[in-house]
């Protein structure tokens, strides 16, 4: 029988058998209790539940970066607003998977809102008619509350977010992640393997110290077979509001994201300039795309949104 482990006792009935842990041959086997409890059968049932729950979500996109503070949350919110403004008939959801440092409620201007639970699951908070958000930030009592959790508890929360939020029909679900290549990332990829992920958008800044971690993240994507939609370079150039001269605050000593994309054979989606007003809008929770529609950052963003839509549409047909 194929499900008999190599080092099992003679006459082992097999771990998947009805008699697992119950026949006389099992006496004395160190794993008898595990077999008898009937636990170790098959893949995590959550994967199937998540697949059903997200069956009405057309495209699921992870926003990743190995490095912290490069603008994952800012880019996620900009993409959310950009997609939502492009067509009022498409629905966008944002899931904030950063458990220890949730930024989306502030960036999207919905701090202090409550999440409601109904028969069909948790209802996300609506930022606009066609843009909704779920974050652990809504579940904390005070902004000082720290979520001091080890991996398994964070994974449990992510599983709940994926399986119990009632998104309704969505065209795009953007998942904002914490920095690194650890529990949250592995769990997201694992839980979403049934539902299918369109791919990952990787965010970086031009300096080598950020690119160093971002290369690791792209390697992570390759290891777990997650397609990379493309790379967005944030905080590229700074335009002085006084004299309009351009300067590089975070100099690209190693060629920046463009060079990295050629080296690693991934698509470069675009570069967003460093705009102090954008930082201010994020703090205030304002929609930057609506407030300053003619700024260079928003013009760049439109191009990025278009290419992401193109990649997603292409991969789904």
């Amino acid at each position: 029988m194929s499900n008999v482990p190599e080092n099992a006792p003679h006459h082992c009935p097999g771990t998947q058998s009805e008699d697992a842990g119950k026949v006389s041959a099992c006496a004395g086997c160190p794993n008898q209790n595990i077999c008898a409890s009937g636990l170790p059968s098959g893949p995590d049932p959550a994967i199937e539940i998540i697949r059903n729950r997200l069956s009405n979500v057309k495209h699921k996109i992870l926003i990743l970066s190995g490095k912290g503070g490069v603008g994952k949350s800012t880019v996620t919110s900009l993409l959310g607003h950009g997609l939502a403004a492009k067509n009022p008939d498409i629905n966008i959801g944002i899931l904030d998977a950063d458990i220890c440092g949730p930024s989306q409620p502030r960036v999207l201007g919905v701090r202090g809102e409550q999440v409601h639970n109904s028969g069909s699951g948790w209802s996300p908070v609506y930022v606009k008619d066609n843009l909704s958000l779920m974050s652990i930030g809504f579940l904390l009592g005070s902004p000082d509350d720290a979520v001091i959790w080890r991996g398994p508890k964070k994974n449990g929360m992510i599983k709940q977010f994926l399986s119990e939020v009632d998104w309704g029909d969505l065209d795009y679900l953007l998942i904002d992640t914490p920095p690194g290549t650890s529990d949250e990332h592995l769990s997201l990829v694992q839980y979403l393997c049934g539902a299918g992920v369109s791919g990952a958008v990787v965010v970086t800044t031009p300096q080598e110290v950020a690119l160093l971690d971002v290369r690791k993240e792209i390697h992570f994507c390759r290891k777990v077979a997650l397609p990379v939609i493309g790379v967005i370079e944030n905080m590229s150039l700074f335009v002085c509001p006084n004299c309009h001269s351009r300067s590089e605050i975070f100099p690209a000593t190693t060629g920046g994201a463009v060079q990295m994309c050629t080296e690693m054979d991934v698509r470069m989606l675009g570069a967003l300039p460093l705009d102090p007003l954008l930082a201010r809008c994020c703090d205030a929770g304002d929609d930057f795309t609506a407030q300053l529609p003619h700024s260079p950052a928003v013009q760049q963003l439109r191009l990025i949104v278009d290419s992401i839509i193109a990649v997603c549409e292409e991969s789904s047909t």
């Binding site: 720290a146 001091i148 002085c240 509001p241 006084n242 004299c243 001269s245 102090p276 703090d283």
Partner: peptide, 29 residues
Amino acid sequence: KTGIPIMGIIENMSGYECPSCSHCTNIFS
């Protein structure tokens, strides 16, 4: 919560002085 004393807070990336006009911009407030 974990009982470690805090020596203090450092604020990084406060202002940026434009190299051509020396105007200081508080990029991140």
